[in-house]
């Protein structure tokens, strides 16, 4: 039994949690989400570098919410999304225990969001080297080249909406893409509609995305969709000075304003 499994078994036995969301092994050394409701099943639980999925996406599901006391195994991106979701009042109806494993391989258990917030602020993640390089590359292109790049990328999109399904911040019960009176986003997968979908997704996530990069990782045709929101976050931080997933009381950059906000383009 690993220290993580011991800790989770202990939490089940003293009644702190009644459902644990974690990772288990799958074929090809992949880690997939698993849901445990009894101490006898804890041996499935693993925590490896392959455990990348953002498990906080499950906290919006009605079947998960039925379990009154939820334990969630969280990497740093997941912790950040928990902080952002708390600031958006999305987790107030759930009694949750957050379990994470720090760089020293110690199992940490947080029973309230203030402690999570403190941990996130002390270990705030940077953009990955790969993302930094891609963003720099895109920003050094001319406008026409960027248009060419994104139109080629969006031409491949099959509108499976996996980027939406995997995103912990996409929790609306009805999405604009399902709205057909009026039809904002075309149902078929053609490039203009794909571009509109990705514009809309990026705008609705601007200032809320916590840069877990799940949308880009999950895309079956390999579009780096996470770069759109990553760039938006950089811009928002530069313009308005707000960081996403940093504080439980930060709110949402586009939901507020300052009279002294600066721009150069409004005539």
């Amino acid at each position: 039994m690993t220290p993580l499994q011991n800790k989770v078994a202990e939490l089940f036995e003293n009644g702190t949690i009644s459902l644990m969301i974690g990772y288990k092994n799958a074929i090809n050394k992949l880690a997939v989400p698993c849901f445990i409701d009894h101490a006898t099943q804890v041996e499935q639980l693993i925590y490896t570098p392959e455990c990348k999925g953002n498990l906080s996406v499950y906290l919006h599901k009605a079947e998960i919410k039925q379990a009154k006391k939820i334990g969630i195994l969280a990497n740093i991106a997941t912790l950040r999304s928990l902080v952002q979701l708390t600031s958006e009042n999305q987790l107030s109806d759930i009694e949750k225990t957050v379990i994470t494993i720090n760089a020293q391989n110690e199992v940490l258990v947080f029973d309230n969001m203030e402690k999570v917030e403190e941990y996130v602020q002390a270990n705030f993640p940077e953009y990955t080297e790969e993302d930094k390089k891609l963003l720099e590359q895109l920003n050094s292109m001319t406008r026409a080249e960027r248009w060419q790049y994104w139109s080629e990328q969006f031409a491949a999109c099959v509108k499976c909406y996996a980027c939406r399904a995997v995103c912990p911040m996409c929790y609306c019960s009805s999405c604009t893409v399902e709205c057909n009176q009026p039809q904002w986003i075309k149902v078929s997968s053609e490039t203009t509609g794909n571009l509109e979908w990705h514009t809309m997704r990026a705008m609705h996530l601007a200032g809320r995305c916590i840069n877990c990069g799940e949308c880009g990782r999950i895309c079956p045709v390999g579009i780096p969709v996470h770069l759109l929101t990553a760039q938006m976050n950089l811009d928002i931080e530069k313009e308005f000075g707000s960081k996403t997933g940093f504080s439980c009381n930060s709110g949402y950059a586009l939901n507020t304003f300052k009279p002294e906000d600066k721009e150069q383009f409004i005539k």
């Binding site: 406008r143 571009l195 514009t199 705008m203 601007a206 760039q231 938006m232």
Partner: peptide, 9 residues
Amino acid sequence: RSLLDFMGF
């Protein structure tokens, strides 16, 4: 506007 610019619009 900055999103559109980033997409090359």
